[in-house]
Computed example of a mutant assay.
Amino acid sequence: MKKYLYIIAFFLIPIAAAAQRPVPPHSPEVHADDRVTFRYFHPDAKRVILDGEFLSSSQLMAKDATGLWSITVGPVKPDIYPYSFLVDSVQVADPNNTYLFANERFKRSIVDIPGSVPLVHSLRDVPHGKIDYRYYKSATLDTLRRALVYTPPGYDASGKTAYPVLYLIHGGSDTEETWTKVGRAHLIADNLIADGKAVPMIIVMPYGNVRPDPMPSFAQDVVNDLIAFVEDHYRVLKDSKNRAVAGFSVGGGQTLNIGLTHTDKFAYVCSYAPYTATEEFRKNFSSWSPDGNQINNRLKLFTISVGTEDFLYESVKQNISMFKEKGLHVKTYIVPGGHTWMNCRLFLATTLQEIFH
């Protein structure tokens, strides 16, 4: 009898221990009125602060008797926002949220506030494209590199239809996944194609960071290696009028480096809040004397976009003036907001409606 009691106790002890553990808090909880509740369990923390791009300033969270920290904010304008917790001054992502910001430096989570009206990046009941994770050999960098490739609804690798290609570059500490996980580039394309506002296209999202710095060879990698890989493996149109390049922040600077120095290969150059304080940009443009008429004839569209609260706003305005002084036709989009992926999604949505027409 004692033997059986030991066996029963052996199985019951883990169950009892598990029953004593707190239920993981639900976080974030988006309410019907667009308020959002964030929760974080840490009985030993002295101070927990919510930091998010939907806040004008960081907010101190309140702790209950069980050690659960929480705060409700808003209503918040519907969109997708990054956020994090500062736990005794240490930045952590929300451990109860699997939706993480794809980034090599920041530890942030993502909250999606859908609202009552579908946004341009919303998941809608429309035909959807496909995302491939592909590896290609970079002779320039002597390594294998990864790129995400979006193919539009109806793409058939064995079919006869060929598509234009947008090369889309992420920000400085982001990764090739940031454009889909945070930027929702694939859903924006799906929605605009379904609405007849964008041409069906292939979108290639490469990994833009090159180690060690500086990175003057990323442009060569795109022009010499990535384009060749895409054109060997996908049904694409191979002339400059069916090729575009766009990017955000550091990727916006790389877009200028790549597009404006290779107008024989790209007829569309769209730069979002470009960071240009790099050796490569100075090398390419500090004493640049372009043939403005030739570039304008080759480029069907050259745009630069930035928010008025962006920390790069002044430098972007200076670059816009510089390009205009060189005689280039540059279309500008100056909007409210900062150096955020909220603005970046809107910049992309605008670009997708303007290219390849």
Rank of each mutant, 00 (worst) to 15 (best):
L123N: 07
K331L: 09
E231N: 07
E314M: 12
F281K: 03
V111I: 14
H31S: 01
R39N: 01
E280S: 15
S84M: 13
T72K: 04
L166C: 11
H42Q: 13
L55R: 02
P274Y: 07
T140R: 13
P14K: 07
P164Y: 11
F266T: 11
D132Y: 14
D310P: 08
I7A: 07
I355N: 01
G129A: 00
L86M: 15
T161A: 13
P214I: 01
A267R: 07
P152E: 09
M322C: 03
K238G: 03
V199F: 06
R105W: 02
F85R: 12
V236T: 15
F101W: 11
V73A: 04
E309W: 14
E354H: 08
D112H: 00
R184A: 05
G247R: 06
A219T: 13
T278S: 15
L168Q: 09
L166M: 06
P336H: 13
S57C: 08
R134M: 00
I113P: 05
V330A: 07
P152Y: 02
V111N: 03
Y99I: 05
I80K: 03
P28V: 12
T98I: 07
E176G: 09
V73I: 00
T72Y: 01
K197S: 01
H339A: 04
K181N: 08
S173H: 05
H262S: 02
S27R: 12
F311C: 04
E354L: 04
I258G: 04
L260F: 13
P82L: 06
Y275A: 00
V111L: 06
G52K: 14
G115R: 00
I71G: 00
T263S: 14
I15R: 09
E176W: 10
Y155E: 06
K241W: 14
H31L: 08
D156T: 12
P206N: 01
F323C: 11
R345F: 09
N191E: 05
L260A: 12
Y268R: 12
Q59G: 01
R243E: 00
N224D: 09
P206G: 04
R298C: 08
H262P: 09
A189I: 04
L328N: 06
E325S: 12
